[in-house]
Simulated assay, not measured.
Amino acid sequence: MDKIYTFILKVSDFDIEKSFIYLQELDKYKDRNIISHPQKLFSQLIRYLVFKRFFSISNIKFNQLESGKPNLVNSKLDFSISHTTKFLIMSVSERKVGVDIEHIRDRKNIEKIAERFFRDEEYSQLKKSENFIKDFFMLWTLKEAEVKRSGLGIAKGFNEAAFKKDIDNKWISCNFEQDFFTFNYEDIIGSICCENVENLPREFFRINNNFGFEKINIEEVK
């Protein structure tokens, strides 16, 4: 399976109680307090649903790396999860993978955030952008996806995930030039970081409210 699978779940498609009951069926999950925390509920649901129903893995056990990234024990599959208030996304591959999504929005103090978290060269190029907000979130997802793949965490790895603009005004990784795929879906932008992702088969699925998988077409953002 030298391929990357990505699964998208839209929170508003699902009933919370029904989702909890389905999670119980998948993993005998008993703590009803999770209903008060939808992001945690759907983060649990998407991983058990994907591995049990899509990949047919029966004995599932997770642990957590030092960085906080969840890890599937006794499996060659690696995965990464990201979420906004509206969506959750999960990418799975036999290669190390990281994924990040962001809701494109006019965020307060966005320029100060860019100046604080981005490298000087990145911030300088970002200020020249004709679409500062979209360019900001694209760069953020690229850096975050690389950090998640490496397992270093934002505190240690964000500055090391370096990018620059090429002659076509596209963000290019200084470390892993062929390892990124960026896309739009509804009002989110997302990036996947995985070895040689540009040349690997990629499949995207949306999880429907019957907990099934619908294959969708996703175009790369150039």
Rank of each mutant, 00 (worst) to 15 (best):
K127R: 15
N208S: 07
K134H: 14
I133S: 11
L200F: 05
M138I: 15
F137R: 05
I57G: 00
I216N: 08
F62A: 03
N33R: 10
E160A: 10
I188Y: 01
K222R: 11
H37C: 03
S93W: 07
I154C: 05
V147F: 04
Q44T: 04
S19V: 03
S56F: 00
L23G: 00
S80V: 01
F54V: 01
K128N: 13
W140T: 12
D168E: 15
E219N: 13
R116I: 01
A162E: 15
I113C: 04
V147H: 09
R95T: 13
F117G: 04
G157A: 04
K134D: 14
Y185L: 15
I89E: 05
K128W: 02
P38S: 06
Q44G: 06
L23H: 01
V147Q: 08
R119D: 14
N217A: 12
R116H: 11
R119G: 12
E195S: 13
S12P: 01
L139R: 11
G98Q: 12
I21C: 12
F137D: 03
S129M: 05
G153R: 03
L152H: 11
F158G: 06
Q64A: 05
P70M: 04
D166R: 02
F42N: 07
L72Y: 00
K86V: 01
I16V: 08
E177P: 13
Y185K: 14
N74G: 00
N169H: 15
A162S: 15
I192W: 00
L72H: 00
I110L: 15
S191I: 01
F132E: 08
I154Y: 12
R47N: 08
L65F: 12
V50T: 08
I189C: 07
K96C: 06
E122Y: 10
L45H: 02
C193M: 00
F54C: 09
E220L: 03
H103V: 09
F42I: 10
N175H: 09
F158L: 11
F117Q: 05
N199W: 04
A114T: 07
F14V: 11
K30W: 02
T84K: 05
Y5I: 01
D27H: 08
H83C: 08
K128T: 13
L142R: 14
N184S: 13
F54Q: 06
N159W: 06
K127E: 14
K18N: 12
D187K: 12
D15L: 06
E160S: 15
K18E: 11
E17S: 09
F181E: 08
E214I: 13
V97R: 05
S36C: 08
E160L: 12
I46T: 06
T182E: 13
K76I: 04
E186C: 11
F42P: 05
C174A: 12
H103D: 13
L88G: 09
K156N: 15
Q44V: 01
G212Y: 06
M1C: 03
N159R: 15
D78Q: 10
V197E: 02
D166A: 08
V11D: 14
S129G: 07
E25R: 15
K86T: 08
L45V: 03
E195D: 14
K28Q: 14
G68I: 10
Q24S: 07
S82K: 02
E144K: 10
S191R: 03
G190T: 03
H37Y: 12
C193K: 00
L77N: 01
F163Y: 14
F204C: 07
N159H: 15
E195V: 11
F204L: 09
F118T: 04
E121P: 03
T85V: 09
L9I: 06
Y48C: 00
K148H: 10
S67W: 09
E102W: 04
